[in-house]
Every structure is written in structure tokens, then in C-alpha cells.
Nucleic acid binder design. Sequence first.
DNA 1: CTGAATCCTGTATGATACTG
DNA 2: CAGTATCATACAGGATTCAG
Lengths: 125, 125
Amino acid sequence: MGDPERMMVGVAEETHRRAGCRPMIEDKWSLTVVSALGAGPRRFTQLKREITGVSQRMLTVTLRSLERDGIISRTVHNVMPAHVSYALTPLGASFLEAVTPMLTWSHDNVKRIVEARLEHDARTP
Amino acid sequence: MGDPERMMVGVAEETHRRAGCRPMIEDKWSLTVVSALGAGPRRFTQLKREITGVSQRMLTVTLRSLERDGIISRTVHNVMPAHVSYALTPLGASFLEAVTPMLTWSHDNVKRIVEARLEHDARTP
DNA sequence: CTGAATCCTGTATGATACTG
DNA sequence: CAGTATCATACAGGATTCAG
């Protein structure tokens, strides 16, 4: 996790690559988490429920690194029972905005890609 | 490569996840390649030169799967010496458009993220 | 020039069990 | 509830070599 080589957001240009950055999107859960938090602050268990398939460990790891990058904030509430809530920071919110076109595109074109694959696989045995 | 579980573009929603898709962005080079091809068709060696750090293998692998997904086209020119050119398909071009906001955001916010990290690391020994 | 075939390794992820 | 600690593993990615 402490690896400075990892976790930069959406980088694809030479300069960034030289800076030792790789797309944050590269990891499996960040986008999903940010996307979920786009609907408003969430607690740990809530996220765990909403995001099908995350292990507890990976959710923790992902939240930690997003927090480190200033994309989300983590707030501990000292009530009983104690709980923690996560929310997008302004930076995180702007990131989500920037990523939304891609999410939309994806949603609109999954079919097309699946088709392209089928055709391609049919042509090449 | 042939794994149907891999390689779907920019997916982050439940439905897609259920469909067994994960973000194409997840892999290290796809975005960079698509981005490079955004400037126009390119030949293999050209891409290899422009994209610092790709191994020959990974460039091939990436090109193949982008081709399979209908994002890029591959054209063999029967001249001497023979060469191959790659270009974005219309689908690929629309994808690049959808991803551009993220690239821009990334470019504009690398600093902020790096700072956030430094602060965070300073606070937490 | 454009790849395919191998071999090898780091590491991202998962499963499981334990804790304040 | 919200994690941490271990352990195990698959797989992406790199280096290298060979070929049409």
C-alpha cells in the first residue's frame, strides 16, 4: 500500500508515467467505491452490502488508499455503537464527475463490446 | 486473454459486475494505447516507441484484446517491408471521447493527489 | 517489422480467523 | 461494527528467445 508507484488517478500521459503513476482505475474496487459514495456518505457495512463481491479486506484497503489520495474522507462517530462513515471530498466529487462520462459510455456500450467479442471469436478459432 | 471474465470497458455498476465484467481500464496499457491512437493510426513499432515502458509482449497483448473488443482495427499492408497499422474504430473513438474528461481531470489534479498523500503520510507514521 | 512461445516473478486479491 | 493479521493463490506483466 505504501508503494508510491501505485495509485494515481486516470493517468495516461508520458509525464505522469514518468512520475511513476498508474491509473487508480487499475485497481478492482476504487471506481466502484467512489461511485457508491456518489450517492452520499456511507458506513463501512453499508458499502460492504452495496458492493457485491468485495471482501472485507479489499474494502478496507481500497478505502484507505482513496483516503490517502484525498478522494474520500473518513469520520469516526463516537456514539454507541461506534461507527465510521465515508464520504467523497470535493476532490473526490470532481473526480466522480470526470469519470461519469466513461461510466455512461460503458453502460451504453457493453452490448456492442460483447458482440464484437463474439464475432471476433467466431472468426478466429 | 480468452477469459470472458476480463476486459470490459469502464464498468462499475452492479449489473455489469454481475455480467462478469471488470473495467478495461484495469489493465495497465489499454488507456495509453487508445489515447495514443487518438492522434491517428499508428504502426506497431511506432506505438512501441511512443509508449514508454511497454514490453513488446504487452503491446501485442493489449492490441489484441482491444481489437477483440472492437475498439481498434488492425490492418496488414502487403508492401515491402510488410507492416501493420492500428486505428481506432468508431466505437473506440467514442470511448476515447468518454474517457477524455478523466484524462483531463487527472492531468489537472496529479499535484493535489500527491500533496494529499504527503500530508497523509506525514500525519500517520 | 511484427509478432508468437516460454519462463518467471511480484503483487493484487481472496478466504479465514481474530479483536477493541 | 469496523476493522487487522495471516496465509494461500491466481494472474498480469516483464525478460528473453525464436520466427514469418
